[in-house]
């Protein structure tokens, strides 16, 4: 068994002049729940389509289970379950018929249908036409389709999109347990760090097509750097003046100026500098950024 279920190296994809995925080198460990994070338009869905062979690469390589998706597309896809964006279901068919359709294409014994319906809690609704399903039920049926045939890896694109809080929680429980209870590695994309943080063992953060971070949530937390926040009027002017003095200040929303954490003397000197120039300083405090703020900083254009 390979240590990495997905490995990409220098993966790039361009649509016209726009570089949507830029030299992406991903490493998804076997047995992990890998959260692939990024804001809308960051290149997550394009990456997933590249992984599934739905798009061709402009450069770089993709290896899944150690095999190239280009040269071993069918054997690799046979070991993967996928849910790309919204589940692609045939609404005129019942849930069971949708699964039977997938069984035929994936060479899976139809007996597996009952098992996957049980996993996603749809056993009693399998006989109903999908057009009568709620969005949450459709999403769960999409997951059941991905789980058919006991794949070694499932790739899910925004699996909680459109779900209500209860549905999100249910999906989260299902996915978090996959590696342990079913031996399935999970690769899922999302634009919500808080959501992924609760279920992922590994995280990759992409912005403007480039990978900004890859590692465990704890490694991301370890990169957090404390900062000094100063509350005052006219923060843009204050930040500019501080920068002219050699302090790397950044103006923030809510009348704040932020600087890297510093010792007591430096803090006193900065305060005196600002007060002498007529700024009304009303707050000076140390600040530990949240994961959300780190995600925001990593994914914002410089």
């Amino acid at each position: 068994m390979h240590d990495m279920v997905i490995e990409t190296s220098g993966l790039s994809r361009r649509f016209g002049d726009r570089l949507v995925v830029d030299s992406l080198s991903l490493q998804v460990p076997a047995g992990s729940v890998f959260g692939f994070l990024g804001p809308n338009g960051a290149g997550k869905t394009t990456t997933i389509r590249l992984l599934l062979g739905l798009l061709r690469t402009n450069s770089g390589t993709i290896r899944i289970f150690g095999e190239s998706i280009t040269t071993h597309r069918l054997p690799v896809l046979a070991r993967i379950g996928a849910l790309v964006e919204a589940p692609s279901l045939y609404p005129h068919l019942t849930g069971t018929e949708n699964l039977r359709h997938a069984c035929l294409l994936k060479r899976v014994d139809p007996k597996d249908i009952d098992r996957v319906l049980r996993i996603v809690n749809l056993s009693s609704d399998g006989g109903r036409q999908v057009k009568t399903y709620s969005l949450g039920m459709k999403q769960r049926l999409g997951l059941a389709l991905a789980l058919l045939g006991r794949p070694e890896l499932i790739i899910l694109d925004e699996p909680t999109n459109g779900l209500d809080p209860a549905g999100i929680q249910e999906m989260r429980h299902l996915l978090r347990d996959m590696p342990v209870s079913h031996g399935i590695s999970v690769f899922l994309s999302s634009h919500l760090l808080t959501e992924v943080d609760q279920m992922a063992s590994h995280i990759g953060i992409i912005a403007a097509g480039r990978l900004q971070f890859q590692g465990s949530p704890d490694e991301l937390r370890a990169r957090r750097q404390s900062s000094l926040r100063i509350g005052l009027d006219r923060p843009e002017i204050a930040a500019e003046l501080l920068r002219q003095q050699g302090w790397p200040a950044v103006a923030r929303e809510q009348n704040l100026v932020e600087l890297p954490a510093m010792d007591q003397d430096s803090t006193v000197r900065i305060n005196r500098f600002l007060v002498e120039r007529g700024f009304g300083v009303h707050l000076i405090s140390g600040h530990q950024p949240t994961l959300e703020e780190m995600f925001f900083d990593l994914t914002q254009p410089a």
Partner: peptide, 11 residues
């Protein structure tokens, strides 16, 4: 609903 993306991701 662009069902091609699921169909063509089948083996």
């Amino acid at each position: 609903e662009d069902r091609w993306r699921s169909l063509l991701a089948m083996p």
